[in-house]
Structure formats: C-alpha cells, structure tokens
Design a protein around this nucleic acid. Sequence first.
DNA 1: GCATGGTCAACTGTTGACAGTTTTCTATCT
DNA 2: AGATAGAAAACTGTCAACAGTTGACCATGC
Lengths: 230, 230
Amino acid sequence: MAGALNNKVQVQSLVDVVAERLEAAIISGQLEPGSRLSEQALAASLGVSRGPLREAIRRLEGRKLLERTPNIGVRVASLSLKDLNEILQVREALECLACSLAATNMSDTEIAALKKMLDDHENQKSVQENKGYYQETKNLDFHFRIVNGSGNDRLAHMLAGDLHYMLRVYRYRSGAQPGRAAEVLQEHRAIVAALEARDPKAAEDAMRDHLCRARRNVEQKLMMSESENL
Amino acid sequence: MAGALNNKVQVQSLVDVVAERLEAAIISGQLEPGSRLSEQALAASLGVSRGPLREAIRRLEGRKLLERTPNIGVRVASLSLKDLNEILQVREALECLACSLAATNMSDTEIAALKKMLDDHENQKSVQENKGYYQETKNLDFHFRIVNGSGNDRLAHMLAGDLHYMLRVYRYRSGAQPGRAAEVLQEHRAIVAALEARDPKAAEDAMRDHLCRARRNVEQKLMMSESENL
DNA sequence: GCATGGTCAACTGTTGACAGTTTTCTATCT
DNA sequence: AGATAGAAAACTGTCAACAGTTGACCATGC
C-alpha cells in the first residue's frame, strides 16, 4: 500500500499486452512451433482489432519468435536440431563469458548468496534421491544469477531474453536432469569456488565443463526420444 | 537473363520495404541515435499510410534498433559507452567462437580464398603507407568470411545482423585503423595460419588477441575524442 | 514573477472498411 | 479419373477516420 503513490504508472498499450500474451502462449506451447496464426481468429479471441495484433506480431518477428511469409501468414518459429545445436553453441560461449566476467564483477554478497543457494539445493529431497535438480523460477536460478553478476546488461538481456525464449520454444530445459543431480550440484560448486577465487579463467573452464556435460546429457535424451519416433 | 524465369519472385510487402529504408537510414546516420521519429512526417515522405510504417517500426523495436515510449513516440536507440563496451564484449566472445568453429568447419577452398584476400590486402597502397586498412563491403570482409565459415548460421546471423547494426548505429567501425595497418595484416595472417592448421584453440586465441588490440586502439581514440569535447 | 488551470493543436493508438492475394470448391472437358 | 478453369470464400495488406494522450501556449490568481 505504501508504494501505491510512489510508483509511476506504467502505461501499456494494447500492443504491449498482446505481445506479452503471444509470447506467453508460444513459450507455454499453446502456440506450437511451426503452427500458423490466424489474425482474424486471434483478434476475435483477444478482443482487439487486427491493427495492434499485427503490430505485436511484428515485434515478435523482429525477435525471431515468429516468421512471416508475405500474403500467406505467420508461423511460430520452429527449430531444427541444427538450429538447436547452433543456439546452444552460442549460448555456451556467452554463458562462459558471463561466468568469466562474474569472477571479476560479482560482489562478495552475491557470491555468498550463491553458496547459500547451493546449500539449499543440497537439502532438496529430489537431489538426495538423485531424481532431479529443480530450481526456482528463471530470475532466481543459478545460471541467471551468474549472468546477472557479470555486470554486462546486454549479455544478461541476451541470455535471459531472446536466447532463453528460443530454447523454451523448443521445450529445451537444461535445469531438471534426472540421474545427474549430484553431479550437477558438484559442478555448480566448482563454478562458485572459481568465482570466489576471483579467477576468470577457472570460472570460465568450470562453466564450460558443466555446460558441455549438460548438453551431452540432453543430446542423449533427444537421440533416444528421436529413435523412439522411428 | 538465364535466371529471369528460374528465380522465384520474392514478394516484398510495404512493411518490408519501409523497414529496410528505416534500417538504412539509421545505419547511415540520417536518423541519428536518440532522435525522435514522427510517424506523420515519415509516412508522408515515404508515401505510405501510417499502418505499414508502424508495423515496420515495431519490427525494428523487436530488433532493438528503435525504442518506443507509449503515447510519446519512437526514438532511434542510442548507446552509452557502457552499452558499447558491453556489446563489444559479447561480440568478441562470439567472434572467438566463430573462429574456433571455422578452424574445424571451413573448407580448404575458403581458407585459400582468405589467404588470397590477405595477399590482395598487402598490395593495398594505404596499407603499405600505413594509412589505413580498408576492406570490401560487409559480406566480403575478413571477419565476416570467418563467421560464415563457422558453419553456425545462427551465430553468423547474430554477428552480421543485429550486433553489427547496433555497433554501426554508434558509428563503430573496427575496420579502418590508421597507423595500425601492418599490424592488423599480421594479426590476420596469424588467424589464417591457425585456421589452416585446423587448430580451434590457436584460432580462438589469435582472434582474441586481434580483437583486444583493435578494441584498445579504438578505445584510445574514443578517449581522445571525448577529452577533446570537454 | 511564479504557479496553476484551461484550451487547443499535434501527435499516437485503435478501429473498421476496402483492396489485393491465396486457397478451396465446383463445373467442365478430355 | 484426372486436369483445367472459374467463382467464391477466406485470408492478408493497406488506408483513412476517429478516439485518446501529451505538450505548448495563454490567461488568471497570488
């Protein structure tokens, strides 16, 4: 209640609202990769006219979440396996950069909070039973804390924004890794130790190691599920 | 003439044309960073209605070349020095990744063409007189050839697309470096040697060395021109 | 002279209509 | 039965009008 008169009213146009809605629908899978959007149906179901809807769609085109063919329509971006691998390569390079920068720029308080987080993770029942390693929502998860600690806002935006969303479109989640929980925790601890030592190179190497293992783990699962489809 | 009936007609909507025009105007500096766009004036001068213009603007918002304040209007994105440094950090990490991948993925033909390019560069009068190192247009320049040789299309798109444009908005050009031409050429040669040796680590290190030197050189110039403004 | 309130012009945001394009369906021919 | 042509339906692209918001300017009060 104290903040009611102290916070500027944030104006949101219909375009802003619609873009958020679309993004949420894409990320939740309600709008599936490759699926076609009908302006008329969407405008009707959202209760807006086609103008602001088109503008919202254009913004998401600019962010490559949607792809348009002139006179035909708009589809949700879909990722081939090649795309996925390419994005993962890019993301790995950027997360390693973030980790290296965090070794220099992250505050002692932030690093202590990271260690506490890992203690909490160790107490998770699912980690102890090696069932899975679940983290809080995006803004509080281990990786994003490090990215934010890099001090490079652009980088944080890229990793937490469009790259993150592209991977979510593909249902790619590296967080929960059944059967690998204890390893992940140890890898996280190695990363934090390097951050604490303020050693950018060690931090980068520890992160790269962790990400490669995570990617390999997921690749195995993808190959298994793709061979099940044949 | 042989291709006239063999190439599909590429449809371009007004939105596509207008977005290209806007982008070109931003990059050429006709629309300066921070400057305000008037829909009415732009629509009149481009001879289109405000609808497609707004859509084009939305796309460029999605690509972060333009920034909108609701009910106020749209400005060309402007970069602080902090922004510039951040983007350069990101770009460096990605160019090093590209170079590392190129060491594996670039064809022998492409590498030979790169060497030939450096021979041509060596014959440039301006390089010999240490006045500057000028390259062909973007698609043919040394860096972008390597990025394309990485085999990672997403990465190439990021480096040749939005990141490139963001830096161009700031008039950031790393290509021409008066007083450093011979050094740059040697650095380029070291990069190609590492590519030829198919050594990803050496290629990455050579590129990182080159980019750090280039950045430092430009930083010096920026500091000099900023102190001249005081 | 400064602060406040009101008005108006200029702008941005949205809507619905119309034009153009593509897809679907039907009829006809071979 | 398959191919072709034409019409209609459904869609996308654009336009112009209207509604809402903001900033500039002017008048009034202290």
